[in-house]
Amino acid sequence: MSLTQQVLKGDRLALSRLLTLVENNSPEGRAALAELFSHTGKAHLIGVTGSPGTGKSSLVNQLVLQYRKMDQKKVAVIAVDPSSPFTGGAVLGDRVRMRDLSGDDGVFIRSMASRGSVGGIAQTTAALAQVFDAAGYEIIIIETVGAGQSEVEIARLAHTTLVVEAPGLGDDIQAIKAGILEIADVLVINKADRPGVEHTERALRSSLELARPVSRVYHHGQAMTVKAHKPPPNTWIPPINKTIATDGSGIAKVIESIANHMQYLRTSGEWNARERARLRSETEALVRDTLMTQFLKGLPEGAFESALERVFSHSLSPIEAAQFLAQTERPQTPRATKEQP
C-alpha cells in the first residue's frame, strides 16, 4: 500500500512520515500532495497568533480539549516556532503547554520550524494543513511564531484567525497595532486573572474602532455601539473574549465565537471567496515556478548569468534584462528551423 493510501486509512506513522516529506518539499511529498488534493477542502483552519508569551499554546491546549469533548471530530495542531537565522536550528517548545492532549488518538500535534520564513508560519505550513485535511482532521489549529507583528500569512491561510493579547505586556498601545487587528476575526484577551484586563480591553476596543469602523445608533442622545447580536448584514465585528488559558475559563465563549465566524463565512459567501482566492494564488505561484523553470531551461547556456552580470554592473536594468532574455533565441526550436536541410 502506498504512503498516501495508508494516510487516508488513518495510519498515524504514515501520516507523520508524509508530513516530513511535505515539510522538506521533497518530490515524493509533492506527488503525494497532488494525489491527496481531491480529499481536501473539508477542514476548518483556525490560526492563533499574537505576541510571544501571551498564552497561545496554552489556549490551543484548552481549545482542543473543548473540541474533543464536544464531538468526534479529529483535531490537528501545527505549532510553528522560529528557526535560528544563524544556524538554521530551532527549539520547538509549544508542546510543553499541550501535555493534556496526550493519549488522545483523535489529536495530532506537529511542531514546525519557520525555516527562514518571516511571515509567522513556514513555507510549507499550508501544505501540512492540506495533508491533515486529507487525513480527515476536520479542525486544524495553527499556532504562529509569536512575533506580534503583522502576520498576514496566517490570515491568508486560516479561515478564522484568533489574535491573542494579554494584559501587562508593557506598552499596550504598541502591542495593539492596527496591522494585527486587521487580521483578527476573533480577539482573545488571555491571562484575564492578571491585573490590567480592563485597560487592555479598552485599548483593544478603541483600536478596533479605528481599524474597523462600527455602525452606531443614537439612543437618548447618546452614541451607542450596535451590539454584536445585530450586526449590519455582511459585516463581521471581531468579538473580544477574555480567557484564563491555564484553567480553561472563557474557552467556551471562544469556541462559540469561532463557530459564529464560521457561520458568517458560510452565509456571506466569504468562505467561497477566500477559498477561491487562496487556490488561485497557489495555482498562479505554481504556474510561475513551472514557466520560470521551463524558460530557464530553454535559454542558451549562460545567457541568464551573463544578463545578470550586466545588471550587477548597472549597465542593464532588471526590466531590460528580462525583456532581452524573453527575446533571446531559444536554442532548440527556432534555431532548428533556420538550419537548412
Partner: peptide
C-alpha cells in the same frame, strides 16, 4: 543539550 543541538543546526522538540 537542547540549546547545543539547536546551535548545531538541528530542530529540537522540547517537551518539558
Amino acid at each position: 543539550v537542547a540549546r547545543a543541538l539547536r546551535d548545531a543546526g538541528m530542530e529540537v522538540i522540547y517537551t518539558g
